[in-house]
């Protein structure tokens, strides 16, 4: 198996939490590496990844430069190729895998069975991670991807409690990576068509959810109205913290009552759960937010770096008030990791 120097070194401490950080641009990659990421994940500038936003992502040349920068500083690079190819046109996805493999990335993060099959056959030495978009939420699903394609790590869908994760880890032969901070889907990822129902653009096919092209902000008197397509997603008062109109994070009316029915505009933050997640056998923490600015990346990565290091030394986790600034709606949640969320 081809193991890069960066990877071999970073796994020196057994049972440790690896910090996996988002990079939407080369500048964000450098910010994440400098702030102490053990790996950054990124995508190509096309529909092959689930953050296919304008102005974001990497050309093959930028990936090559980024790899050089990261590897020189003992940091791994994972490439997300995690949308589902259109029928009859899988070439772009195959090219993305070939390119990532040729450039020597440390792993590719995949979701589609056909794409996994291609990668496993064409690049047997390429390390495969299973994207959250594959929605592998139980031991048998994970075993399937491991046995069929040699998947070595699975990014768990944000539907499991810490107890579920601990139980799962005792039954599977692969590493698990869990979301630690940032925007969160209340739905099982990769199995959600809400965005395409409302905007025609979907995470699975186009690589976007609630795309900016369909977002409008309108003023109505003293209120700010956020709209997606033809629908009002939320209405903010002058003093409210605003939110992006992600369609599952708006206020809707059920039985005559308005509420954040699916999820409030809030950020996942697992800092208080770090010791529990370590005990549950989790291998890596993933920071969400390839679409966020490099200031966000630097801030969040530094905070988690400090927290994990404190955990390593057996110290209690320091308070991180600075994270409040970058959270959506300026609110935090421990999400599905706590049963009460359901």
């Amino acid at each position: 198996m081809a193991v890069t120097g960066a990877r071999a070194k970073s796994k020196a401490i057994a049972g440790d939490l690896e910090l996996i950080c988002p990079a939407g641009t080369p500048a964000a990659l450098r910010a994440a590496v400098d702030a102490g990421a053990e790996a950054v994940y990124l995508g190509f500038r096309d529909e092959t990844n689930a953050r296919n936003f304008p102005g974001l992502n990497f050309s093959p040349e930028e990936l090559a430069t980024g790899l050089e920068y990261a590897h020189a500083r003992n940091c791994m690079v994972f490439v997300a190729i995690n949308t589902f190819p259109r029928a009859g046109a899988p070439e772009a996805w195959h090219r993305a895998i070939d390119c990532a493999a040729d450039l020597g990335v440390d792993a590719v993060i995949l979701a589609d069975i056909g794409v996994l099959d291609y990668a496993a056959r064409q690049h047997p030495d390429l390390r495969l991670h299973l994207s959250v978009q594959a929605s592998a939420s139980n031991a048998e699903a994970i075993r399937f991807y491991h046995e069929e394609f040699g998947v070595r790590r699975v990014v768990l869908p944000r539907v499991l409690t810490v107890e579920d994760i601990a139980e799962l880890n005792s039954r599977i032969p692969v590493e698990t990576e869990v979301f630690a901070f940032g925007g969160m889907c209340p739905m099982a990822e990769g199995r959600c068509l809400l965005s395409s129902y409302v905007t025609g653009k979907s995470p699975n096919i186009t690589g976007v959810c609630s795309p900016a092209s369909h977002v409008r902000y309108e003023e109505r008197g003293s209120e700010l109205v956020s709209r997606l397509g033809d629908f009002t997603i939320n209405i903010f008062q002058q003093s409210d913290a605003a939110g992006y109109p992600t369609l599952c994070k708006g206020r809707f009316v059920a039985d005559g009552r308005a509420s954040y029915l699916f999820e409030a505009p809030t950020s996942l933050n697992v800092l208080p759960l770090l010791p529990e997640l370590m005990a549950a056998g989790v291998s890596a923490l993933k920071i969400e937010g390839r679409q966020r600015g490099r200031a966000y990346t630097a801030q969040v990565v530094a905070a988690f770096r400090a927290a994990i290091d404190a955990c390593r030394r057996g110290e209690s986790i320091p308070e991180m008030p600075q994270l409040a600034d970058v959270t959506e709606g300026q609110r935090e949640t421990s999400g599905a990791y706590r049963r009460a969320w359901r």
Binding site: A241, A242, Y244, G293, A295, D325, G329
Partner: peptide, 9 residues
């Protein structure tokens, strides 16, 4: 972060 600026209005 642009989002953070926006969230805080």
């Amino acid at each position: 972060d642009g989002d953070a600026l926006f969230f805080s209005r």
